[in-house]
């Protein structure tokens, strides 16, 4: 077991635990996308998942987010095994415990920014007035107080992603996951979003798990998990301004430049 030093309350409670998690895609050829992954993530961690294209990063994130079903292994969410939960139970957990930000923002085009942010709360059965107030607050806090009534096609990529972040946070989830959420944005917008997430992580102890290609962004997080061919090959943790690699980091041949100095 690793020691968790981050998070405001310094809890050691693991919010997500993966045990021997595997995923095999079987349309035509069999692809072993995830190969017996074991991973613990504590509340309040800010985690980046990196690795070459096709290594299984998205697959892993989708498993954690209960957006897809594993072939074998276990997913424990707050200590409860959810890998075999019913579709309705998974839907409930996605709504209450998880927030998502995807590469393409995936806002619903018919809805305004405000309505998009309100949606998870409405799905949760909250009152519309309550949802409206909370969604407004969040949009203001991501700097979109002026654009609440715009529809997604009237927003820039960066603005859309900020709406998506607000939407992911609206139900106060245990974990927010993001799959290359800045992959479509320029450097400046990406930095802005990462700073926003970093700030939220610090302020409200929000757990984030982000997949990224961009090592500059990955190094803004506290923990970097490197995946190659469906396996975790390396883990690095921030200590002060430095990253310290775990003893597993002996495979460097895949081109990922994680500098240790």
């Amino acid at each position: 077991m690793h020691e968790v030093t981050l998070g405001m309350n310094g809890t050691t409670e693991d919010i997500i635990v993966l045990r021997d998690l595997s995923k095999v895609y079987k349309d035509g050829v069999e692809v072993l996308a995830l190969d017996r992954i074991n991973l613990d993530i504590a509340a309040g961690e800010f985690v980046a998942i990196v690795g070459p294209s096709g290594s299984g990063k998205s697959t892993l994130l989708n498993m954690v987010g209960l957006l897809d079903t594993p072939t074998s292994g276990q997913i424990l969410l707050k200590g409860i095994d959810v890998s075999r939960a019913s579709p309705n139970e998974r839907a409930r957990l996605r709504n209450k415990e998880l927030g998502f930000v995807f590469q393409y923002h995936h806002l619903i085009p018919e809805f305004t920014a405000l309505e998009n942010v309100m949606m998870p709360m409405l799905i949760a059965g909250k009152k519309e007035s309550e949802a409206r107030v909370r969604a407004r607050e969040l949009l203001v806090s991501v700097g979109l107080g002026e654009r609440m009534d715009n529809r997604p096609n009237q927003l820039s990529g960066g603005q859309s992603q900020r709406v998506a972040v607000a939407r992911a946070l609206v139900n106060g989830p245990s974990i927010v996951i993001g799959d290359e959420l800045t992959g479509n944005l320029d450097t400046k917008s990406s930095q802005l979003i990462y700073d926003l997430l970093r700030d939220l992580n610090k302020r409200i102890n929000q757990t984030f798990i982000l997949v990224t290609h961009d090592m500059v962004l990955a190094e803004k997080t506290d923990r970097i998990i490197r995946i190659v061919d469906g396996r975790i090959v390396c883990e690095m943790r921030r200590q002060g301004d430095e990253f310290v690699a775990s003893e597993k980091c002996d495979l460097g041949e895949d081109g990922g430049e994680i500098r240790r100095d």
Partner: peptide, 9 residues
């Protein structure tokens, strides 16, 4: 997207 946000079938 709706299902990702927790909408049931």
């Amino acid at each position: 997207i709706l299902m990702a946000m927790g909408a049931t079938r």
